[in-house]
Design a protein around this nucleic acid. Sequence first.
RNA 1: GCCGAGGUAGCUCAGCUGGUAGAGCAGCUGAUUCGUAAUCAGCAGGUCGGGAGUUCGAAUCUCCUCCUCGGCUCCA
Length: 633
Amino acid sequence: MEIKIRIGDSVSEVQDASGINKILKRGNAVALKKESGEFIDLDSISDESDDPELEAVSLDSADGLEIYRHSTSHIMAHAVRELFPDAKMAIGPAIENGFYYDFDIDTPFTPEDLKKIEDKMSGIINENNPFRRKILPKKEALRLFEEMDEKYKVEIINEIEDEEVSLYEEGGFVDLCRGPHIPSTGYVKAFKLLKVAGAYWRGSEKNKMLQRIYGTAFAIPKELKRHLNFLEEVKKRDHRRLGKELDLFSINDNIGPGLILWHPRGAMIRKTIEDFWRNEHIRADYQILFTPHIAKLRLWEQSGHWGFYRENMYSPMEIDGVDYEIKPMNCPFHIAVYNSSLKSYRELPIRYAELGTVYRYERSGVLHGLMRVRGFTQDDAHIFCREDQIEEEILNVLDFTIFVLRTFGFEDYNIYLSTRPEKFVGSPGNWERSTNALKTSLEKKGLKYEVDPGEGVFYGPKIDIKVKDSLGRRWQCSTIQVDFNNPEIFDVSYRGADGKDHQPIMIHRALMGSLERFFGILIEHYAGSFPLWLAPVQISVITIAERHIEFGLEVLKYLKKNDIKVEGSFDNEKIGYKIRQSAHSRIPYSVIIGDKEMDSGKVTVRKKNGENLAPVTKEELLDMLNKEIESKK
RNA sequence: GCCGAGGUAGCUCAGCUGGUAGAGCAGCUGAUUCGUAAUCAGCAGGUCGGGAGUUCGAAUCUCCUCCUCGGCUCCA
């Protein structure tokens, strides 16, 4: 027997089992990968001696970690089997950052159960049971799982096309599994069960609700700890928590779920965002629109929304015997503005932009703070252009999007191209043309992208951009959609050079997506500590004793008059207390005013991080603040 | 919508097996005038999410309902 094993860049030839083990240990391997890309278990190595070269899959690699987590989920299932013999096993894959396993069990798991399961798992890991692979003909496997009354496994086996299926056994616990697995349970060094949740069998609400246990596992305890710290940090930054703490927004039972109240500080941030947005759009040759919140139901029937988007729309309301509908999208209104007068080819492209508030029905269980709501404001725009202008317009929009996202501190993106969904309007030819236009622009720009098949909107394909926040999480905000269909439906046209009418193409686009959601992302991205230009209160004027209030007021009034968002902290409190308050409110700067400042006429400026700047006059302070605001950093 | 967990003062939370509510912070009042993350004292604040039921008696038990949270599904 002679086998070539590659670990990283070096290839070793090994003869016997002990040699193999040594090599594999050195590579921290949990499985092997064949040249075909197929993964196999370490101990099936002798069956593969004809394979020219095997690659050791290290636990440090993404594949290795996935195998490791998958095995951990099996160990969890084993533990559940022992503690809850009635539980039926469904599926237990590795997922991003961990794994889960679904069980059909009459009484749902409690947090105490999780602890018990964890302990049992530790026992199984200590036993260091080897994972043994068995191949069985389908019939035999079926019989086995029928005897065990594992109906989900039976269902899965029936859907497997091969004549044989693989099982894995570890410490007497047998499970249907494609594999591979780590060689033995003792390989697991760090895991934790995180939460229990209901999950439908196969994700369909027509099926039975199973109990899912989520867990995570890492190669070493230190990494697990790092991940748990990350989860803590995510919790600390939760925009719902910070929104309350910083008094930015609220949701009120008496008003309704998914409907946002922007409090003064949140509204101030929104105003800053909106001002920036409008100014930049005007600069980029967009025209700003305002349109109504409701329109006749007939309009939505014509646009296709009533047919294709109805499940997200609210019930119509009757006005003077005519049905009206609250808008879920802005496009028909922008089309109506376009259509209000004859357009010449010379005018194109025409770019209409609106911060348009729309209402969409979302099922109660999916609402989530600012991230998923029922009423939200889109930073919407519709570009009407000739077919020969599409590419350039899309290139412009891509540039503009990246500029705007950068301004908010998002430097990293993933781009997705979504193609025709199952339910769609328009001709397949139009879909193909518009998809190609998007593709060409991305390629011209040299932007990397992935294709999301079937994820387009019903009226056209789209480019989605996901940003990466300061914790490395990805959020989808921007979307760019080509639409050949609405112009046709609404008979949109322009007068061409030939004196005849032609149909323009529409591009729908949103950069931030929804202001509510974007705000939520920003809160978490900045952990509530907004950069100066966005901060709802930019500076707090803190006096030390009563005799300093007069000068404090002078500084406050001066800054306010010059458009600085300033707040006075003149209460009869100790300075330590006031600084603490200012820090809690994440106010970027504080001005300290005491005897020294009164004498010199200069103020002491304290930065959020505790650093004190050299004393400056109020004019110098204003200049400094304005420069930083201007930089938007 | 479905499964599970919750809803007690403005906020964060305590309140065991039923005997009609408690802390810290915030608020108010007073004292203190104190130079970089909490000065002290006092006061006030709740039909315990809402409704119905069981009971002599319900924050506590039962049912219904609304909302929130974790997921499933979907999306901006």
